[in-house]
């Protein structure tokens, strides 16, 4: 199966995943056979899921992953404890949105935690995971072993991105769950007042919280795609992580400059804080839809870029 002589782009397009599924056609130094025998039937689709599973277990067995999730969970806990300690003094309003509702309803701790974490903490942790995807393997010198297993570069990339998205979900859930739990313990729960002034029960408010978590995870998936692409550019994982994190911050700064207003709807951070639309009655899905479109665009573009870059890259480490 030599696709070298295929001149038609459309056909090449269709074939390219297949062609990279073959063992890499470059000479690979090192004990290539060590990984290969374990997965002799890796060309089946199920092999991708096996690889995904092992990637997830690697990700979630790392101390670093848990340290980051714990740090994220600590944000709402910190907020709740501080508000609890200060509540008796009856400080004036101000601070981040939802902060003054916390004392009435513990579930708002989760929302305040999200508002506080979205600008920096969440992007930072996503940058670490996404920037590490390819560059981390390259930096450890394990990338070429991964590629000698007949998993293929496309599949490896998909698995890496999938794991990063799972981390996005985990990160959002860490804040929401920790916030809801600590809020319930310290302040109790009850019917939740939405922004529209209507009141909903605890059950429905938990559904809304999960929706908000899904919204935030979706928002971060775009950043994860950017991080994946940057990660294919370098073999220094720290460089990829830092670049992704800086990009997230710079984009938010650009998003705050009124002089660049025409650009704002195209920035991947544009809808990050618009999850409040899920707290109206009835739910306003406009922001969710617009955000999904925007993030989908970023995911498509940067995954395509990452694929192109990664599949043409000379893997030397």
């Amino acid at each position: 199966m030599s696709s070298d002589a295929q001149p038609v782009p459309a056909e090449a397009d269709r074939q390219s995943p297949e062609s990279v599924d073959r063992p890499v056609d470059r000479p690979v130094a090192g004990p290539a056979g060590r990984l290969a025998p374990a997965t002799p039937e890796n060309n089946r689709p199920s092999a991708g899921w096996a690889l995904f599973g092992s990637e997830l277990s690697v990700l979630f067995r790392r101390l670093r992953t848990w340290a980051m999730l714990l740090a994220l969970a600590a944000v709402p806990v910190l907020i709740a404890v501080v508000v609890r300690l200060a509540a008796d003094e009856g400080g004036p309003g101000g601070g981040p949105p939802f902060l003054n509702q916390i004392t009435q309803n513990g579930l708002f701790v989760a929302l305040t935690g999200l508002v506080v974490s979205i600008p920096l903490f969440l992007p930072l942790t996503i940058s670490v995971v996404a920037g590490d995807t390819i560059a981390g393997e390259a930096g450890h010198g394990t990338l070429r072993y991964l590629l000698t297993a007949p998993a293929g570069r496309l599949r490896l990339l998909a698995v890496k991105y999938g794991a990063a998205v799972v981390f996005c979900v985990a990160a959002a859930l860490a804040i929401v769950v920790a916030g809801a739990v600590i809020g319930t313990i310290l302040f109790g729960t009850g019917p939740v007042t939405l922004l529209s002034g209507d009141t909903i029960g605890v059950g429905e408010s938990l559904v809304r919280l999960l929706l908000v978590a899904a919204y935030v995870a979706l928002s971060l998936a775009g950043l994860a795609a950017i991080g994946l692409f940057i990660s294919t550019l370098t073999e220094v994982p720290v460089g990829a992580m830092a670049t992704t994190a800086v990009l997230a911050v710079v984009t938010q700064i650009v998003g705050a400059l009124p002089q660049l207003e025409w650009l704002h709807p195209w920035l991947f951070t544009h809808y990050w804080l618009s999850f409040a639309d899920l707290l109206r009655q009835p739910i306003s899905w406009d922001a969710f839809g617009a955000n999904a479109l925007l993030q989908g665009g970023y995911i498509a573009v940067f995954c395509a870029l990452a694929y192109s870059r990664f599949s043409t890259k000379d893997v030397l480490s």
Partner: peptide, 19 residues
């Protein structure tokens, strides 16, 4: 490397389709 440019196709096609 005749195949290299084909692998860059998605990177060009996807943004074009979105635009």
């Amino acid at each position: 490397m005749a195949r290299t440019w084909k692998r860059w196709l998605p990177a060009a096609v996807v943004p074009a389709v979105i635009a």
